[in-house]
Design a binder for these strands. Structure first.
Lengths: 229, 229
DNA sequence: AATTTTATTTTGTATGAGTATAGCGCTAAC
DNA sequence: GTTAGCGCTATACTCATACAAAATAAAATT
């Protein structure tokens, strides 16, 4: 797990978390490469590369003489996997989590509908296997959670829409952080397998409309189980 | 327009375009920083920073001894504004454009529905202004196209969902390519303004359901005008 | 044959010097 | 008094070189 951290990566992570957590406000400046990098105890090289990473994600902008400044939130790539991870590494902002669930509620049902129309027999086999694994191990185990994610990933693959898949995987991954958080503190009351099987059956039948509603139901129940509000 | 290009930025752009265009296939390696950077006539510093930028967008990964390799398409951040720009800078891949449009068909109707419920008077004013600009200049002009994109951006903003709003650039790209495809076919038979006004009216009335269907209609008609198939 | 050790290649980090850009203040002209 | 042009300077940007660490491959050892 503790895969040796590259320095620039580590710096980007530190700065990124500081920015999303609000420690640096938009407009604030990271003034002076030399001072900043010295303050962090690293050389300019990895520090600058970290700046490039954050700039690539829309969180910083830097010009000669003007310095390096935090950009307004609107230009951050909030759907970037790293940015999402940084967001959830601290206190997850409730409004933001709710917004993510809302977005997921838009995307995944649509993906399920597309999947119903475009799935191949190969997809169906793989989904069936994932479901069986899920039922066998249960969601409290590593293997069960992996099977759950695999099931959702297969739906995206079957939907045959690349941009949709990247979007949904980012959102899905971040949502799973919160799920993990929930499970730590709670009961895991309901068996999620039947909900998933309903989605699978609709996709198998090629019934796009039913697949959409089944997925909506699944997400709604999952959201209620979290008890966010 | 020609705002002086920083070197690392320029290199990232060149490499990024080469990757999305397929000149470098996933799995291919950019072997040897020193050779590569020398071949480009630059020093290692900006070359490495360009690598960091592309890595941050999920298109490269690099490890000591193993070299720097292009990652599989599935891990690219296709919704990153820069990546999208690189995608569209070359030949427009029809399948990708269609997929992006399909995604738009998922996002925008839902956004319109949310906007109908959450828009402020400020949003309405701005949207009305964008519409007037659109009607005044027409979609064949720069100003008109800008107003079109602004209108769609405002809908996402009015939906009051931050992650959703970050998709504005993606949607914007889709919008601009819609008009471009239309004009290539030299058809331009129908006035798009009424469709937009229908969406606006529904949002103004706070009618979420009507806003959704109006947006769906708008997109369907626009898609037909594109004549992708 | 499996395992440990060594070698080697490639990226990663450190450092210092010099360049170019863009904001700021100054001057001068209107 | 205002504005336009000009030079100054702070800051990021680029270059060059050296060395360290990491991961794979090969070799040696058990």
């Amino acid at each position: 797990m503790a895969k040796t951290p590259r320095l620039h990566q580590s710096i980007a992570r530190t700065l990124g978390m500081a920015i999303v957590s609000g420690a640096y406000q938009p407009g604030d400046g990271l003034e002076g490469e030399i001072e900043q990098s010295f303050a962090m105890g690293v050389s300019r090289t990895p520090y600058r590369e970290a700046i490039r990473i954050l700039t690539a994600k829309g969180m910083l902008e830097s010009k000669p003489k003007a310095g390096t400044r935090v950009t307004p939130r609107g230009s951050w790539n909030l759907l970037d996997p790293d940015v999402l991870a940084w967001m959830f590494s601290g206190k997850p902002d409730r409004d933001f989590v709710r917004a993510l669930f809302e977005l997921r509620g838009v995307i995944e049902p649509a993906a399920a509908a597309f999947a119903a129309q475009r799935r191949t027999s190969w997809h169906l086999e793989a989904m069936a296997y994932a479901l069986s694994q899920m039922a066998q191990h249960g969601l409290s185990t590593e293997a069960g959670q992996a099977a759950d994610q695999e099931f959702h990933r297969l739906i995206l693959a079957a939907a045959d829409n690349e941009p949709l898949a990247t979007l949904a995987s980012s959102v899905g991954a971040s949502v799973s952080w919160t799920t993990r958080f929930k499970q730590r503190r709670a009961v895991l009351p309901r068996d999620p397998v039947p909900d998933h099987e309903a989605v699978f059956a609709a996709i198998e039948d090629g019934d796009a409309c039913r697949a959409r509603t089944a997925m909506e139901t699944l997400l709604r129940l999952a959201f209620e189980d979290m008890g966010l509000d």
